[in-house]
Design a protein around this nucleic acid. Sequence first.
DNA 1: CTGAAAGCGCTTACAG
DNA 2: CTGAAAGCGCTTACAG
Lengths: 361, 361
Amino acid sequence: MARKIGRRGGNIVTIHDVARHVGVSPMTVSRVINGEKNVREETRAKVMASVEELRYSPNLAARSLATQDSARIGLLYSNPSVAFLSEFLLGILSESSQSGAQLLIESCEGPEGATVALEKMKAAGCDGVILSPPLSDSSRVAKILKEMNLPFVGVAMARPDPTVSCVTIDDLKAASAMTRRLIELGHTRIGFIKGHPNAYASQIRYEGFEAAMKKAGLEIDQSFVGQGYFTYRSGFDAAERLLSHKTRPTAIFASNDDMAAGAVAAAHRLGLEVPDQVTVVGFDDTAMASSVWPELTTVRQPISDMAGLSVRLLLDQIKAHRSGRSFEAVREVRDFSLIERQSSANVAGPDYAPAKRASDS
Amino acid sequence: MARKIGRRGGNIVTIHDVARHVGVSPMTVSRVINGEKNVREETRAKVMASVEELRYSPNLAARSLATQDSARIGLLYSNPSVAFLSEFLLGILSESSQSGAQLLIESCEGPEGATVALEKMKAAGCDGVILSPPLSDSSRVAKILKEMNLPFVGVAMARPDPTVSCVTIDDLKAASAMTRRLIELGHTRIGFIKGHPNAYASQIRYEGFEAAMKKAGLEIDQSFVGQGYFTYRSGFDAAERLLSHKTRPTAIFASNDDMAAGAVAAAHRLGLEVPDQVTVVGFDDTAMASSVWPELTTVRQPISDMAGLSVRLLLDQIKAHRSGRSFEAVREVRDFSLIERQSSANVAGPDYAPAKRASDS
DNA sequence: CTGAAAGCGCTTACAG
DNA sequence: CTGAAAGCGCTTACAG
């Protein structure tokens, strides 16, 4: 097994070792590794085999030095849910470390704060910016970035904008799907807790709920609709109100998991069993959803993957920007999924609930 | 402002630009940046100024390629609290991306699972391993690693072991300090929810509680001590039992935040106000603590920093290991702090609570 | 205290 | 379809 002793004495398998082992040039190995065409199938197979055998794995530092695609990217956030944010960050960090991008993280309050933060990023030499929701939907922030001539990508944008690259799910469909599921379970008096009014997704999710209710011929009792702010506390308060009506909803759909967790707590406080007496469902599938009890049925949004993909998109965009090429904005729509856990049940009670349709993985 | 047009057209300030700007060699700039001695103070100042002016910032990829200290490190975890884990991961990821280390993440159940996971890591070419709690306290896992001749560092080790490098806090002191604080607030009937029995920290935290109670001349009512498993649900169940006694505790100290959040929910369920009728405090200061309502008073353990530091320690250790140097195990003890939020109050009620001593930052 | 040379592991651009 | 040369930005090891 070919090994090389580096200056520091480490022993690492390099592309040269593989090349020698196979009897080709390092260039060919590089081609195979990067999945380029123009390599004979036979050569490719031999190289692959050798890579396996020698346990070769490319040195990321060398690669990013050679490709010159190391970039500095900024992450601008302002999000009330820590759970959401940490999952988001996880995706960004793991992707940017893989692609050798340097990261600069700034938070901001409101669009004024955004201006300050973005100027700081520009000054620090950022080549592009990732926007977390609800910033990704802010046309003001987008305008600032365009004026600064900085590439950027929005994550979880709810308002389609053909001029801005983004990674998102279809919030409207997702909210509709969850609502339909509740209706399937026999619920007709369904409450809804809206998200923060400054987030466009809040509006879209409510519209999805509305649409599904309408389609099923169900009426929305406005006293069953509460305003929340994406925080646990706001979900608690809103749910407490909704559940205090003489005729109360049999299910509550909260626009995120933090609020759903708060709603469960409010139900418990009022002596109501979840899901036996009230079904509560959330949105996002953050750590919060599986940290509370009962664990929350929710809409899974692959936050971490979406964030990771946004880094790759931004890097492409930066490359194009650097070389003066024009760049077409792309809108990547990821699939959501319904995750059924213990906080939801048939209106007749959990014993009557049909088989689970999806599971936590 | 000196700029260089790379092959790909990007424009980046390099060490050469700074050197030219100051009129020294790149070598000297490198020395200044790395804080080496053997540079005249005057030269150093000029270089620094130029670095500022040109906004130079070193290319991490080039550095880690040149220093050859890129390593592959494995992270082995098994932790029931998602909140804990994600903060832990954040620290690991951000540090390993800064130091250009490649990361391999594996989870495992029990020591048998550990063997499999560690062999996988070894096969994948890992140069060292980070252990999250409670694995960091497992002497079996330590033994396997030693037999494999793989450097490793434990995070949040509760059981001191002079042969193993680790980053930790003093769990005993921390639990005592929180207990003292509860006593200061006038509580005498204090309940305690233990952590998972497989975690050594569970035991130590309980000992800290015991010690402080004893010192204050207070008795521990064993019916006020519940067994938990670090999950929300277990905290909920345990608290429900503790609070159902005829004379109930006026404060509950849970061994982590997830359980404390569950305890708050249980109190609410029983119609008890927090903190008016029961004070509930946690441990760790994870996202959970500030995501629920009331927000939790807790012991802050700088998980993310500790995890980051563990990566640096491991990297040093790997370097030593590679060059055949011997390596002394180090035990880095970080400071904990008491974070007082809304879930705790004077036994006479929140209106009598003294001024806050610490705040969330 | 300072610098010239060589090299880290990979890829680009070019030539065949 | 394949390869030889040069270079990415930095640091090590050596010489002065």
